[in-house]
């Protein structure tokens, strides 16, 4: 990979993750710059979600170093770690909404835990977040089991954004959304990045998202980053998987 990027919000060095005898990530390096939308692609089962989960600390690594907001997560004290966690938001692949809480309570949960504000402001912020992700306030008192797949994604994003984080991890945000919904979602991510100065780490398979939303693309293969750069770099790449990915039937359809 290219040399040190000074303004990296996430700095991953030499990460190795192993499940039993299978090495999923093998000495992986990755930088995510402040304020960019990084699209993260790779074949199914290559370990995209594993890397995300390793960065946020859900999967143990056997070697390597992870810095987020300049804090080394292994060396951080519990308080420092909580400070970092308060500044990021995570959208899980399946939404991971709390099934016994309503949409309102799901979105308000992190706010209520971290900030001492009035119920009125909590409600207003909840409605604002719902509006941002394109949902009507009427869904606020529904339970996650009463929502469609696309709505779950949106509510989960609203929850990830509840505390106005500086960094969001999106794990396949547009999978399961209709194309118009997915397009709106990309637009939304762009708007949020512009207005809130958000940094976005997006695992995706949606070529449209890669073209319209992402500033930079990183490709995972064989446990390493095999390429990183703009969409033009990706198209120019000679790597067989990349050629297939960016010049396949679907890619041509997207490029028109």
């Amino acid at each position: 990979m290219a040399g040190e990027i000074s303004d990296a919000i996430i700095r991953v060095r030499d990460i190795t993750v192993q499940f039993g005898k299978t090495r999923v990530l093998d000495g992986l390096d990755l930088d995510v710059k402040r304020g960019e939308i990084l699209g993260f692609v790779g074949p199914s089962g290559a370990g995209k979600s594993v890397l995300t989960r390793t960065i946020i600390g859900l999967v143990p690594k056997i070697a390597g170093r992870i810095e987020v907001f300049g804090v080394d997560l292994d060396a951080a004290s519990a308080a420092e770690r909580r400070g970092v966690e308060r500044r990021w938001g995570i959208l899980f692949q399946q939404g991971a909404l709390f099934s016994s809480l309503t949409v309102r309570q799901n979105i308000q949960f992190p706010v209520r835990e971290y900030l001492k504000v009035s119920q009125r402001l909590l409600d207003e912020i909840m409605v604002a977040k719902l509006g941002m992700v394109g949902l009507k306030p009427e869904v606020a008192d529904r339970y996650p089991s009463e929502l469609s797949g696309g709505m779950i994604k949106r509510v989960a994003l609203a929850r990830a954004l509840a505390l106005d984080p500086e960094l969001v991890f999106l794990d396949e945000p547009t999978s399961g959304l209709d194309p118009i919904g997915a397009g709106d979602f990309d637009e939304l991510v762009r708007t949020l990045q512009r207005t809130l100065g958000l940094t976005v780490f997006m695992v995706t398979h949606d070529l449209d998202s890669l073209y319209t939303a992402c500033d930079r693309i990183a490709v995972l293969g064989n446990g390493k980053i095999i390429a990183a750069g703009s969409i033009a770099d990706m198209q120019a790449s000679k790597h067989p998987w990349l050629r297939q990915y960016f010049h396949g039937k679907r890619a041509r359809a997207v490029m028109g």
Binding site: R104, R120, D123, E124, M126, V127, A128, G131, P137, E138, A140, D141
Partner: peptide, 8 residues
């Protein structure tokens, strides 16, 4: 955002 949030 609508002025009056829905009441619980």
């Amino acid at each position: 955002v609508k002025a009056e949030p829905v009441a619980e």
